[in-house]
Each structure stands twice: as structure tokens, then as C-alpha cells.
Simulated assay, not measured.
Amino acid sequence: MRVAIAGAGAVGRSIAGELLENGHEVLLIDKTPSAISVERVPQAEWLLADACEITSLDEAALERCHVVIAATGDDKVNLVVSLLGKTEYGVPRVVARVNNPKNEWLFNESWGVDVAVSTPRLMSALVEEAVSVGDLVRLLRFSQGDANLVELTLPPEAALAGTRVGEVVWPEDTALVTIIRGNRVLAPDPEDALEAGDELLFVAAPAREEQLEELLSVRAPEDSV
């Protein structure tokens, strides 16, 4: 898979390193000469150019990329790169970094963004996830399809503890993705019984999050099983 990363700062270089280790081709683009540190990620391709310019993206052959990652420290730049990548070059997957949480509402399909990653929101979500039991925590927002990755740790007194996955009537537009139980990661099976302490990860429509949290709460709705 070929990936172009706009922004060769610490974030962009770290992403590039991970992708290269997984066997992908990576092109790092930055307009600041001091950011072009080939020795730090020698396996990547490097391009000194402004990723907001069509001529630069032509030189980068963006049409050959499977993924574009807008990882600069400027939200305006990330939005422009995302929009150009999607509309001008038809890149299948566009991931954008959100630096200011106040701008998060802009990072959607209208600007060509498939997945928006807000570092401040993600850090706060991880803190909540570590200390919250029985509360729904939003981990990631998917712009495409209007869905979120959410997590809930089943409390000991949850009414659904002991209920088989296949017996639960989950809210519409909600999918149980995985169950983390201790050191194990389980693919949900209809015959698996939920246990107190299970960390449940869902992809859910925002409008269904309240229903999901109510379903998994201590007081189970009458139609939950």
C-alpha cells in the first residue's frame, strides 16, 4: 500500500516509521527545509513541497496513493490537503489530524476526510476509558458513515452479565466489534456469555449511543434480552 503523509514533523515521522515496519510504501511531504530529515526515516521517500499546491501533489503522484494522511500542526492545511486528495486525486482513504478540538466539526466528508483523529480528544478518551466503568466512552469518530468507535467496561452489577451475546437485542446501527477480557481479545460469538469487567468495543451511530449505554447499564430495559 502506498501512503502519502503531509507533514514531516514528529507525528508524521512516527506514523511513517510504523507504516514502513508493516511493509508499506511511504512518501513524506513538507514545505519546510529543516523538516526534511531523510536520515530519521531513510526508508521513506521525501518531497520538499507545499502539500496545499496542486503542482506539488502532481509531483507526489497522489493519484497512485491508497491513503493520504494530513498530519501537519495546522488544521487549515490538513483540511486543504484532505479535500484535494479526495476530490482532485480520488484517494480512497483520507485520514486527517485535528489539532484544535474546536475545529473537529469541520473534519468530515465535505472536506474529503474519512477518518478524523483528534489528539486532545483521544487522550481524554483514553483517560476516561482507564477510569470509567459502566460509562460509554467515545474513542474515535469515523466521518464516513457517521459512526463512532465507543467503549464500555461492563460493571459487576450489570444486568447483562452472564447473558449470551446472541441473546442481546443490540440497538439498530450498532455492532459489537470485540470483547477484551483480561489479556484476551475475543471476536464476539453468539454463544459467548458477557462477563463483568469485559471491555466492549462497538461501532455505533451517534444517535444510538444513549440506547447502548442504557442497555448495558445496571438497570436493563425490558426488551434487552
Rank of each mutant, 00 (worst) to 15 (best):
N78K: 06
K86Y: 04
V131K: 12
E21C: 04
G112D: 02
N100T: 05
R93A: 08
G17F: 01
G7M: 03
L122C: 06
I179T: 01
P171L: 12
V81A: 06
H24R: 14
P92C: 09
D50I: 03
M123D: 07
P221A: 03
V3H: 00
A175N: 09
R97T: 08
T119D: 03
V77S: 12
D198L: 02
V165I: 10
V185F: 08
L149I: 10
F142V: 15
G12P: 02
V3Y: 03
V41C: 13
A10V: 10
A125I: 11
E195D: 14
L106T: 00
S37W: 00
V41Y: 01
P33E: 10
V117D: 00
E59W: 05
E191D: 12
L176F: 11
P206W: 05
L149W: 00
N100Q: 09
Q43C: 10
R181D: 06
E59T: 13
G73K: 04
E128Y: 08
V169I: 12
G162T: 14
F202D: 07
R93K: 12
C65Y: 15
H24N: 11
L126I: 15
D74K: 07
V67S: 03
D189Y: 03
R93D: 02
V169C: 15
T153D: 02
R13P: 07
R121F: 05
E222G: 05
